[in-house]
Design a protein around this nucleic acid. Sequence first.
DNA 1: ACAAAAGTGTTGCATATACACCCATGG
DNA 2: CCATGGGTGTATATGCAACACTTTTGT
Lengths: 223, 223
Amino acid sequence: MDINNPLYKGQGLHVLTALFTVDDGKFKVLLLKRKNQPFKDKWTLVGGACYNNETLEDAMNREMNEKVGLKGIDFKLFNVYSDINRSPVMRMVAIAYIAVIDSKKFKFLKETSKAQDADWFLIDRVPPLGYDHDKILQDAIDFLREKIFDGDILRNLFPEYFTLPELYNAYCSILNRAIDRRNFRKKLLNSNLIEDTGKIQLQPGKKSAKLYRFTKDIKKIII
Amino acid sequence: MDINNPLYKGQGLHVLTALFTVDDGKFKVLLLKRKNQPFKDKWTLVGGACYNNETLEDAMNREMNEKVGLKGIDFKLFNVYSDINRSPVMRMVAIAYIAVIDSKKFKFLKETSKAQDADWFLIDRVPPLGYDHDKILQDAIDFLREKIFDGDILRNLFPEYFTLPELYNAYCSILNRAIDRRNFRKKLLNSNLIEDTGKIQLQPGKKSAKLYRFTKDIKKIII
DNA sequence: ACAAAAGTGTTGCATATACACCCATGG
DNA sequence: CCATGGGTGTATATGCAACACTTTTGT
């Protein structure tokens, strides 16, 4: 390739994550309020520009830390966005990831040097977003709902132990519909996705529940 | 973003397609022999750099035409590759697509201004490729085999009519294993992926076979 | 005793698999 | 009549959906 061809110049890469949680039975997405132009003061998904000396995954980890103070999040690629004018600053192609985390174990920062605010938003109370993030978020929701039974995409929502009713409620919240409890138990227990830990969770005011965990061997989703 | 930050400069985008066919019952991939540096004289997948005034899809169509003279191919995203040194020229992130076409209807050019040679290679007779295309090709094969029953990814392999035995042979070639013929028929005919055209193909030396076509409404694969 | 949540089985239906024979055609 | 390849049905197993009652615990 001719590195001096002007058609190759001035291209950049965005990395973005639609970062979800289920908190108090509610399906939510983490948004941040931008501190800088473009789209200053607008809410967007978590992300930013990839440097030329890092992989996309490294960039996503760095941005997650810089913008909202989160580290060690697993994310999965789900799409790529390349409309020429999706950024008003320069040509930026967005690589879009999805992640689901436990909002009690992964605490975001309300303000950082790169964002003036951040918060969990109910999925049906999302304000208009900057860039093309409205569409990207909707695609991410569709992707998550489509793939939720196909792998361990909820692993980081329950990084340690969990009871089946907890997992069940997370599924129902994300899918926004009731699932049959008995069928859900059978399906999950017959999969090799989760395993019994032998431990019991004593719950005040409730019957005790068995504790499960995600199995170590990752069952990957091919995007 | 600070457009003058040197960390944002000098990034480029590759678009690549692992372009497959089934020809004479053999699963093959289209490779081209590079005319220019880097990797001059090496075989690679079809692709090239994306310009800053076109979408990735436009770039892929243009490269497909420039490098091997093919137009109007449908391709699907399957992965992204961002190792920093995957190109020796500059930082290039590769967006990788997959496509399957009818080698009798889509004729490639042996030589173009951008490639000194091109050819279909048996999938198990692929020479060492330039860039990281060996890995990308292997990922593409895995993806295709994983998704082959989930959508119309073979639509362009049979752009018009086809008989069920023809489709059956394509599946077996790609999967590299025998499928039960009766079960294959039931599965495909019960799906709404293909439909009977009412036409019959008279075949010299064989029993006539019904002709089918892919249905219009595309059943999309969420990548 | 009652309220709240955990836990458990069966049946019917749809889909996937395994498997063998008949039919049409050309030579 | 035979070789080639197209076309078909049945039986079994497995996965999915619908459905209600019992157990534990705290109040």
